[in-house]
């Protein structure tokens, strides 16, 4: 369904900060794939996701989604196909607006917006129902400002917003990295539950190797802008963190995995 072919991307070309991030990246996702992506800092994981979302555009290569070439499509135009949850809990929601207003914005993703009222009565009932599924007590706080919520609550809300209109592809960019361990595992469980119930195709970047093995049906390891390890099915289920570390060390020529990867 998603196909990225031979993608190259350099940031700040011709300056001292020049950084070649993606070097001939090739990825292909099948319908219903739930892929976890791991790799060290600067491996290009987030850049890959941002490229799919249209935040950055590739210098070379092409991206197709369900057969449609979206390589040069602006971010807001491809948003109708994509659900996104960001690393920063502040990024996915509008803090000064109410919970229901945020949901109403997400509910209209991919639809034409005009001069009709921003929220209708029937919608609010739907929102209450959906918020109950999160089990965070938000269903009684529809008109509360999102800025009053905790990071975990905001991430859960963003997840709900990303899937309110069923996306073709769900992009989770280290969406639990900024949360405490308990909240993080709750949000992860919620993610898996939502992905399973709508049988969504999803890409989840994570720094946590255990999570990468535990969740999803396929795992991709990136290093220096390329995929160096791609495993799925039974083989993935039987992986251990030590296997991944070994792979990583081999690929990086003995360089140690960074602290964050080992610790998590």
């Amino acid at each position: 369904m998603l196909k990225m072919t031979n993608i190259y991307k350099t940031f700040n070309p011709n300056t001292v900060n020049e950084k070649l991030v993606l070097r001939g990246l090739n990825v292909e996702l099948k319908d219903g794939d739930f892929v976890t992506v791991i790799g060290g800092n600067g491996a290009g994981k987030s850049t890959m996701l941002n490229m799919i979302a249209g935040v950055h555009f590739p210098d070379q290569g092409s991206i197709t989604l369900d057969g449609e070439d979206i390589t040069g499509l602006p971010e807001h135009k491809r948003a109708k196909y994509l659900g996104r949850v960001f690393q920063d809990p502040m990024m996915g929601t509008a803090a000064n607006m109410e919970i229901e207003e945020n949901l109403a914005l997400a509910y209209r993703r991919g639809q034409k917006r005009g001069l009709n009222w921003g929220i209708t009565k029937e919608e609010k009932e739907l929102y209450v129902e959906k918020l109950k599924m999160l089990d965070l007590g938000l269903e009684t706080r529809l008109t509360a400002k999102v800025g009053l919520l905790s990071g975990g609550q905001r991430q859960a809300l963003t997840l709900l917003m990303a899937t309110l209109q069923q996306p073709k592809l769900l992009l989770l960019d280290e969406h639990t990295a900024a949360l405490d361990p308990k909240t993080a595992s709750k949000v992860l469980e919620l993610s898996e539950q939502i992905i399973a119930s709508y049988s969504l195709t999803a890409l989840m970047v994570t720094h946590n190797m255990k999570n990468a093995i535990q969740y999803g049906n396929r795992l991709i390891m990136m290093y220096e802008g390329k995929i160096i390890y791609d495993v799925s099915g039974e083989e993935k289920k039987n992986l251990h963190v030590s296997d991944l570390l070994e792979k990583f060390e081999k690929a990086s020529g003995g360089e140690f995995a960074n602290d964050r990867m080992i610790l998590s």
């Binding site: 971010e75 990024m91 996915g92 509008a94 803090a95 607006m97 997400a106």
Partner: peptide, 16 residues
């Protein structure tokens, strides 16, 4: 209103 609040979010929801 949302644009003045969080542009990235608004673009992610498909708004120019």
């Amino acid at each position: 209103r949302a644009t003045g609040n969080n542009e990235a979010m608004v673009r992610a929801q498909g708004v120019n």
